[in-house]
Amino acid sequence: TQTTHELTIPNNLIGCIIGRQGANINEIRQMSGAQIKIANPVEGSSGRQVTITGSAASISLAQYLINARLSSE
């Protein structure tokens, strides 16, 4: 079954999640098997909405990979 998880990434950290020309986010997508959508910046908001869709296992793996990127910054 597909589930969806949403999280907010601070604007100053979204770059390390996306990577150069989307390299990091594509790697996270491939490794986790989850669909990951990053919302466009919202004016006045300090973060970007990230939506992860997939199986429970792929979502938790995607979250783990995202958190690993954030903590390495």
Rank of each mutant, 00 (worst) to 15 (best):
Q2M: 14
I66E: 00
T1S: 12
L65F: 06
L61Q: 14
S60I: 05
G47Q: 13
M31L: 12
I66G: 03
S71G: 10
N67C: 07
R48M: 06
G44S: 06
Q63P: 00
Q63G: 06
N11P: 05
I18C: 02
G19D: 05
M31N: 15
S60D: 15
G47V: 12
L7C: 07
A23Q: 13
R20Y: 13
E27I: 07
T1I: 14
T53V: 08
S32A: 03
G44V: 05
G54Y: 00
L7R: 05
R69K: 15
Q35N: 14
Q30W: 05
S46F: 12
P41Q: 13
N12S: 11
A62F: 02
I66H: 15
G33T: 03
G22E: 15
N24A: 12
T53I: 08
I28K: 00
I28V: 06
S46L: 14
S45L: 12
I17R: 00
N12C: 06
P10Q: 03
Q49H: 10
S55K: 06
N11G: 07
E43H: 11
A39I: 11
I18S: 04
I17G: 03
A68S: 13
H5I: 14
C16E: 11
I18R: 02
Q21Y: 06
K37E: 12
E43F: 07
I28W: 04
A23E: 13
L7S: 04
Q30A: 12
I59M: 03
G33I: 05
G22I: 00
E6A: 12
Q63H: 08
Y64K: 15
P10M: 01
N26M: 09
G33A: 04
R69N: 09
G15A: 09
V50E: 02
A56Q: 14
R20Q: 12
L7F: 10
G22W: 04
G47H: 08
G44P: 06
I59H: 05
Q63C: 10
T4G: 06
G33E: 03
L61H: 15
I59A: 11
A62Y: 04
Q35S: 12
N40L: 07
G44T: 04
P41H: 14
I17L: 11
I28H: 00
E27A: 07
L65C: 01
I18F: 05
S32L: 02
A68H: 15
N40M: 10
